[in-house]
Nucleic acid binder design. Sequence first.
DNA 1: TATAATGAAGGTCAAGGAAAGTCAAAAACG
DNA 2: CGTTTTTGACTTTCCTTGACCTTCATTATA
Lengths: 164, 164
Amino acid sequence: MASLADRIERYLREQLARTETGVLEVQRADLSAMFNCVPSQINYVLATRFTIERGYLVESRRGGGGFIRLMRLTCPFACNALDRLGQRIGERVSQEQAGHLVRGLEESGVVSRREADLILAATHRQAIGVPLPLRDAVRARLLKAMLLSLFRHEAGGGVGDALR
Amino acid sequence: MASLADRIERYLREQLARTETGVLEVQRADLSAMFNCVPSQINYVLATRFTIERGYLVESRRGGGGFIRLMRLTCPFACNALDRLGQRIGERVSQEQAGHLVRGLEESGVVSRREADLILAATHRQAIGVPLPLRDAVRARLLKAMLLSLFRHEAGGGVGDALR
DNA sequence: TATAATGAAGGTCAAGGAAAGTCAAAAACG
DNA sequence: CGTTTTTGACTTTCCTTGACCTTCATTATA
C-alpha cells in the first residue's frame, strides 16, 4: 500500500529520469492538483525524499512564475556533501537513517549495489546486536569508518574530516 | 502442539516461499489480527525466527503506509561453504583473525579490494568501539552479516525500491 | 517615475492520526 | 527452576492536512 508520499516520489523520479540534463522543473500547484493533495504535501516529499544525502538538490522560486527545480547530483563526494554527511551522522544513527543515507549513495553511483548491501548488513540491528542506547552509537562509528574507507579510494586527503 | 509463534513463523515462511523474488511485504496489524494476538508478538517472531543467521533480512517502515518486509537470502548459513565460514568465525573473532580471513577472501577473488577494505573498516576495534569481551562478539556478528549479504539474491526488478 | 496594491506562486509549522518498535513483567512450558 | 512465549503499556517514526507566512512579478496610482 504505497503511501501518497511514495507515489509522488516515484512520479518525480520518473520525470527526472526522463530528462537529459538531470534537472526537472515543476509547479507545486500542478503536482498537488495531480495527486489531489494539499500543496504542502509536495514540500514534505521534497524534504524527506530529495535530500542531499540521497543525492538531490532542490531549488525554488516563489511568486509569479515560481517553480520548483529538482536536480540530481552526479557526485556528492565531489563537493562538501561528505562533510555534511559526517555531521549528519553525528554520535548516533538509527538503522533507518543509515538505510536512507546508503541508498542515496548507491543511487548517485558513489557505491555499488554490493557495497551498499555490505554497509546495510553491517548497520543492521541484529548484526550489531547490542542494546539500544549503545547500538546507535556503534552504528554511527561503523558508518563513518566505512564511508571513510570508501572515500580514501575516491579522492585525496583533506576532505571528509567530519567523518572522524 | 505448535505455539503461536511457531504458527506465525510457518505462515510467513509459506507466504515467502510463494513469492517469485523471495521478498514478502506484510502489515503487522494484519498479522496480529489474523492470529488474534498482540502486535508485538509479530516482532517476537521476527526477532527470534527471521534472523540474519537463519538467512533472512527484515526491513520495515513505521507510520502511515508502514510495512514489514521479509527477505530470504539465497545462501543461508545452514547450507554450504558459507556455513563453514560461519562456523570458523564462531561467536567471537579478534581483529587479527578477521583481517586474515578477509584478505584471504580478497586474494581468492571473492571480494574486491574496496569491499575488503570496507569490511576491515567495520571490524576495526575503534569502529566498533565497545570494551573487549563484547567487542569480539559484535565483530563476529558483523562479519557474518556482511559475508552473508554478499550472497544475497540478485532478484530482478529492484528489490527494496519501496524503501528508497 | 517611484511607489503602493494585488495576485500568484512557494514555505513553515504544528496538530492529529497511522503505523511499527521497545521493554519488561507475567504466563506457560519442559 | 530456567527458558521460551505471550501480553500490554508506552515510545518513536512517518504521513497527511490545514492555517498562516513570505517572496516575487505585475499593474494601478500618486
